[in-house]
Write a protein that binds this DNA or RNA. Structure first.
Length: 517
RNA sequence: CGGGAUGUAGCGUAGUCCGGUCAUCGCGCCUGGUUUGGGACCAGGAGGUCGCAAGUUCGAAUCUUGCCAUCCCGACCA
């Protein structure tokens, strides 16, 4: 439309020669630490060198850089749509929670007390000694405020005013927010003191309905992980000791990283009437009887960024599934003279427009400050799913060279039907990444009834289905002896009589063991 | 928070044991030219309170103490 206007009044189209939106700061050694050399270092290198995030001046807190944030925004968009499609709406609750709120649910405060940031004062003043500012001792708060580690308490305190009747139910609310948990040891995206997430908090008239909601949202997470992130997950419920503080039942999805360790990728909790009772949230039912409301909460965080990186990336850098890539296609012009530069960039812009018509996101890398080879490597490092190279030779032939990030395969394609081919390729990359991750996981998933083999397999890394006698004591013992935890009791688990891997006591089903992040 | 290691320019590093023109080298950055189908080359140039703060000394990147940060291993966790 704008193009048409421009044409009518014959205005020159604004086409800046340098659309330098790719950070110039990009710097890296020619070699990335390999996964085999040092998996942790490999992960950190990718996060920092692909410009996803950096450690900040604040202990345990990260700066999410534009390229990393763009991926998080893609995740948000997809999830937000899924939440809305399942009837939820967004709202926002305060960052600060009065200390007294947090302590109203006994298990909840028990679980979070050790990692809370606390606001005690509301004012600074000049240091009498002349060195900067100090906390004004006269500005002490009557009641301390806790920086939310999660929002159940402030939200249920609010829900008390919103819910009187069964007609007010269900209440299906989500919020996108930041939370703070004062972690001892932090790792970019996987565990930071402050992180971004979404937390759903729903209220229901019956336990059945709340359980259905809990399971529905677990399903949403599993679908998102598999269809968008291209990460296969195992759905299950946590054991009592791994349950969310204040939950009756915690559902989760567990994914396997490339070092064979498990990563919890999302949780959905059935909270029973615990929070309703703690915050006196009652409703009158159709039958006129007063009852406490049933609750759920569910969340995924920027930790998913860590899962995404660790699932698909290789020793050449980040690999992104097309559905979540900041941009799906990068076009790299190849040229010698100014005339060639103009010609290939024009051709590139046309391709970009065509692809964008089909909903493909494209970046034209028309920087004339870097050579094509440099750009190839840079975009590979940053995980762009598809690269299109176009040079004078291609213009003469009506072709382009297309290269896949996941397999490094290249092919020369006709420009005419490029859009269809590109869309097809992006779909292929998306499913290839999923299948690759699935194969990887299945090859490292074992069943064993022997304790010795259990130990050997754990050291190799992977998921192990083994029998457990169902007691927290045994679970704890196994954890102490092996560092492995019960990731979940899978939902689709067949019942099977057996003997506990450690104690030999009777067991009715296998559970999923792994070392975890 | 416990054990171990590290901290020198934007990044990676030499020098630290044996204090004294030592602040070294590579990448990156800037300027000019030649280049451009897989990380260009040549020439010139800029950039550092040696993590921070005290102390020892005529003199500290180097020795001492404290603090901070990062990494690895534990405990805790999305």
């Amino acid at each position: 439309m704008f193009g048409l206007v421009a044409k009518c009044v014959n205005l020159p189209q604004y086409e800046p020669k340098f659309t330098n939106t790719i950070p110039q700061l990009f710097s890296m050694s020619k070699e990335l630490t390999t996964r085999e050399e040092n998996y942790s270092k490999w992960y950190n290198d990718i996060v920092t060198k692909a410009d996803l995030a950096d450690n900040s001046a604040v202990r345990g807190c990260m700066v999410i850089k534009p390229y990393g944030y763009a991926i998080w925004e893609k995740m948000q968009q997809a999830l937000d749509k899924m939440f809305k499609d399942t009837g939820h709406v967004n709202a926002y609750f305060p960052l600060f929670i009065p200390k007294s709120f947090l302590s109203k649910e006994a298990a909840h405060i028990e679980g979070f007390a050790k990692e809370c940031a606390v606001v005690t004062h509301y004012r600074l003043k000049n240091d009498p000694d002349g060195k900067g500012v100090i906390v004004d001792p006269d500005a002490k708060l009557e009641e301390e405020l806790i920086v939310r580690p999660t929002s159940e308490t402030i939200i249920w305190n609010t829900y008390r005013d919103w819910i009187q009747s069964y007609r007010d139910l269900p209440l299906l609310i989500n919020q996108w927010a930041n939370v703070v948990r004062w972690e001892m040891r932090t790792r970019l995206f996987l565990r930071t003191a402050e992180f971004l997430w979404q937390e759903g908090h729903t209220a229901h008239a019956t336990a059945e309905e709340a359980v259905i909601e809990t399971e529905k949202m677990l399903e949403v997470y599993a679908t998102f992980a598999e269809e968008f992130m291209a990460i296969p997950v195992i759905k299950g419920v946590k054991t009592a000791s791994e349950r969310f503080a204040g939950a009756v039942e915690t559902y989760c999805i567990e994914a396997m990283m490339q070092d064979g360790k498990a990563l919890q990728a999302g949780t959905s909790h059935f909270l029973g009437q615990n929070f309703a009772k703690a915050f006196e949230v009652k409703f009158t039912g159709k039958d006129g009887k007063l009852d406490y409301v049933w609750a759920t909460s569910w969340g995924v965080s920027t930790r998913l960024m860590g899962a995404l990186i660790m699932s698909h990336s290789d020793d050449k850098g980040l690999v992104l599934p097309p559905k979540l890539a900041a941009f799906q296609v990068v076009i790299v012009p190849i040229y010698r003279s100014d005339e060639e530069y103009t010609a290939v960039c024009d051709a590139g812009r046309n391709i970009k427009k065509d692809l964008e018509r089909f909903g493909v996101s494209v970046k034209l890398d028309d920087r004339d400050t870097h050579k094509p080879g440099f750009k190839f490597n840079e975009h590979e490092f940053r995980g762009v799913p598809l690269r299109i190279a176009i040079g004078p030779r291609d213009i003469a032939n009506g072709t382009v060279e297309v290269a896949r990030r996941d397999t490094f395969e290249k092919e020369v394609l006709q420009i005419q039907d490029l859009s269809t081919k590109v869309i097809h390729l992006l779909e292929q990359i998306q499913s290839n990444l999923y299948n690759r991750a699935l194969t990887y996981r299945d090859e490292r998933t074992y069943r064993t009834d022997s304790w010795d083999e259990f130990l050997t397999l754990l050291d190799k890394g992977g998921f192990i289905y083994a029998h457990w006698d169902g007691t927290p004591e045994t679970e704890q013992k196994i954890k102490e002896m092996t560092k492995a935890t019960i990731r979940c009791i899978p939902l689709d688990n067949p019942k099977e009589d057996g003997k506990c891997i450690l104690t030999g006591n009777p067991s009715t089903q296998r559970v999923l063991f792994a070392r975890a992040y």
